[in-house]
Design a protein around this nucleic acid. Sequence first.
DNA 1: AGCCTTACTTACTTTTTAGTAACAATCGTG
DNA 2: CACGATTGTTACTAAAAAGTAAGTAAGGCT
Lengths: 130, 130
Amino acid sequence: MAEKKADQFSAAVNCPIRQVLDRFGDKWSILVVELLSHKGRLRFSEIGQHIGDISQKMLTVTLRSLESDGLILREIFPEIPPRVEYELTPLGMSLVPQIESLTNWGKEHLETILHNRKTYELRQKKKITY
Amino acid sequence: MAEKKADQFSAAVNCPIRQVLDRFGDKWSILVVELLSHKGRLRFSEIGQHIGDISQKMLTVTLRSLESDGLILREIFPEIPPRVEYELTPLGMSLVPQIESLTNWGKEHLETILHNRKTYELRQKKKITY
DNA sequence: AGCCTTACTTACTTTTTAGTAACAATCGTG
DNA sequence: CACGATTGTTACTAAAAAGTAAGTAAGGCT
């Protein structure tokens, strides 16, 4: 099935959804954007504390790629101990409404989804045990 | 840094964004929803052909989890060779606008992002080679 | 009898992603 | 002169996601 040529429609191999997902489908990027959109400007350690369970390494990686894409700005203060602050750029801010709209959908429907999953499990068990 | 307690704000450990990402951050789910929203009702092999580079296994896995969540409906026709058709449920359809809005953001800004990445790379090289 | 079709399933391998823990840099402080 | 503070980096490991290829079912066709 692989190797087939995709058509001109949206699921095609190089469509923009896939590029967006490739970039933001990771575990932390969207979370960091969301956080900065609420808090404005934060330093490295503050972001880590707010998220709560991100490792230093992943925080660095995530911030670097967001910076590289131009979604956040990184400002270094030449002090000791070092201080580095991050904030959204206008481009980063332009992503926020989209994230919020996804989040709102989640808030609205996740309960239903969880319920559906349970129902589905039960249906499966019945069929197998039968 | 891990093990910290997250606060009441949006980046907290169990916030809805994370649940949405955990579920739809995979490679194919959103793509299948998008495809079905454009094409209506498709059988297994048609979905595979439209996407172009998904393996049978991943298509099955993706369709199962979408079905389990109640986003798509699966109808089996007891024929030989077998025919199975998939279509969005109302819940699945309710996700479509959110996906489209993300996609549109991508279409609008991906060029800028690609450009930013190149610029960033150059800046890094300069600093290192200097 | 053997091959075709479709929609899977299974076992196994590869690739990607993320986590862990130790170390670096640097200055002020005790 | 070791220690703490902060923002990293690095090497290594673990876990998750995805890919590959073979097999299954069941009846129709030749």
